[in-house]
Design a protein around this nucleic acid. Structure first.
Length: 156
DNA sequence: GCCAACGTTGGC
DNA sequence: GCCAACGTTGGC
């Protein structure tokens, strides 16, 4: 099992939106970065645990937990000329962009702010605190995932 | 294949 | 809204 962090802008799609979806499951479309795409296509597996992180908003930080329920498959929005994430250069024969499905597991009573994460002495590897923190999909090592999760759950 | 210009992300 | 840090594009 592996661990990940997915960013989302809560104005567009929040942890609450995920919780309110049918079956509390949604496909994570709109990833248009090659490094993130490679994670989606090749590495993210069913059962993997995913932190949901709210970015570009008033309260920035980890807000909840989800689980991967479907592994990488082509992101259909790339083929739709009407869609925001349409990609002229991609075709169904050779899709450029992939997505996974995730299912809501838990919303934390209080979010774990980015500021706090940066201040934690034992959190040094997660992309949020390093260069390259702009990736919208990033791996989290088990030790840091466990630490962050316990932090989220004890502050409840 | 280099690299300048441009676009995007995302914290503040 | 600003701006730093990246990522992508495209001319050469």
């Amino acid at each position: 099992m592996q661990y990940w962090l997915f960013k989302t802008e809560p104005d567009a799609f929040s942890i609450d939106d995920l919780a309110n979806m049918p079956n509390q499951t949604e496909h994570w479309d709109g990833i248009r970065n090659y490094q993130a795409r490679n994670f989606m296509r090749d590495q993210i597996k069913q059962g993997d645990q995913v932190f949901i992180y709210h970015s570009s908003c008033k309260d920035v930080g980890i807000v909840g937990l989800a689980e991967v329920v479907k592994e990488g498959y082509p992101d259909h929005t790339q083929f739709n000329p009407e869609a925001k994430y349409y990609d002229l250069k991609s075709s169904p024969d050779n899709p450029r962009w992939y997505m996974v499905d995730i299912k809501f597991k838990q919303k934390f009573a209080t979010l774990l702010p980015l500021k706090t994460i940066k201040e934690m002495a034992d959190i040094n590897e997660i992309g949020l605190v390093k260069k390259g923190g702009r990736l919208s999909v990033m791996p989290v090592i088990k030790t840091e995932f466990d630490l962050l999760l316990s932090c989220c759950q004890t502050t409840n």
